[in-house]
């Protein structure tokens, strides 16, 4: 058996040829995987330090877990355009996750797939917001509004990181999460200002999502060291610009930021590997096939 890839799609129906096609030969040489990991060139292949790897792992897990959630909407969205839009957002986030996990793995020689498929739940470092279930469309939009508004502020600042790889990853991600935020804002306005039912659902979704906001802006020791080196922004410094955007959206949507509710007995501790009940089943599903064939290549 030869390991060569035959001329499959270079010309559709090349053997035997289906007459001449007026649109010319269809080529598939430029598959959308040209640069597999953002930031790889910028970082010139240098390995992440322990702190940088921990930071990249947290951000990578946020993106991966949210991508996994959003992927579930494909074939189930309220309209076909949303199958496409939510699929697109999931795909962007998966791209960010791959770049970030790949970079995190350079610290100790693990691949993106080692990290995604062969870590157990307590080793995942995503914040609680990202693992929350899709709920109805309003819940997904409320989660998207918070996530994308936070990610826009985060990546804008990471673009200026003294770590060239993180800066390059953030530069690419920045443009994408900007679109995600726009999508979430448009839907927040439509649902809040649409029918009585959609408004009722949006209010409930905002109320149930808000307890997960604080965790995104909590400072910790690892990040504090990276802040000193100009590698990462201080999470708490992102809160003010986040609130400013949210206040503007909520003013237009006639919504109020839920304040002063003590929703949790304990605060979100995703960065320490402590999770809600929702992450375990998500990981079990995501990892099942890879774990059934350890060492296999796909």
């Amino acid at each position: 058996m030869s390991g060569e890839t035959p001329d499959l799609g270079g010309r559709v129906g090349a053997e035997p040829r289906i007459e001449t096609d007026p649109h010319g030969d269809v080529t598939v040489d430029r598959v959308a995987l040209a640069e597999e990991f953002a930031g790889e060139a910028a970082g010139a292949g240098h390995a992440a330090s322990a702190d940088v790897a921990a930071y990249a792992l947290g951000l990578g897990d946020d993106a991966l877990v949210l991508a996994q959630r959003l992927g579930d909407w494909i074939t189930r969205a309220p309209e076909l355009e949303e199958d496409v839009a939510l699929g697109n957002i999931a795909l962007d986030l998966l791209g960010h996750a791959r770049s970030l996990l790949h970079y995190a793995g350079t610290h100790d020689g693990r691949s993106e797939d080692d990290l995604a498929y062969f870590r157990d739940e307590p080793e995942f470092r995503n914040a609680w917001l990202f693992e929350q279930p899709n709920g109805d469309f309003a819940h997904t939009i409320a989660r998207q509004l918070v996530a994308s508004t936070y990610l826009v502020e985060l990546y804008r600042r990471v673009e200026a990181s003294t770590d060239a790889t993180l800066a390059a990853i953030a530069a690419k991600a920045s443009k994408e999460v900007d679109y995600h935020r726009d999508h979430a804002i448009q839907w927040t306005l439509r649902l809040a200002g649409g029918t009585d039912e959609s408004r009722r659902r949006m209010l409930r979704a905002v109320e149930q999502t808000w307890p997960y906001v604080d965790e995104l802006f909590r400072d910790d020791e690892v990040v504090a060291r990276l802040v000193d080196e100009g590698i990462a922004p201080r999470p708490s410094s992102l809160r003010e610009p986040f609130d400013a955007v949210i206040d503007q959206v909520f003013a237009e949507a006639d919504l109020a930021r839920p304040e002063g509710r003590t929703a949790f007995v304990v605060d979100g501790r995703g960065r320490e590997g402590k999770h809600t009940e929702h992450l375990g089943p998500l990981l079990a599903e995501m990892q099942v096939l890879a774990r059934a064939h350890p060492g296999a290549s796909w």
């Binding site: 995987l33 597999e36 991966l64 996994q68 992927g71 579930d72 494909i74 699929g87 999931a90 795909l91 998966l94 791209g95 996750a97 791959r98 996990l101 993106e112 797939d113 995604a116 498929y117 599903e285 995501m286 099942v288 096939l289 890879a290 064939h293 296999a296 796909w298």
Partner: peptide
């Protein structure tokens, strides 16, 4: 949701 590598997941999505 169960694609066995992140690359395959991205392509399938």
């Amino acid at each position: 949701s169960r694609a066995p590598s992140l690359k395959r997941k991205a392509i399938l999505m």
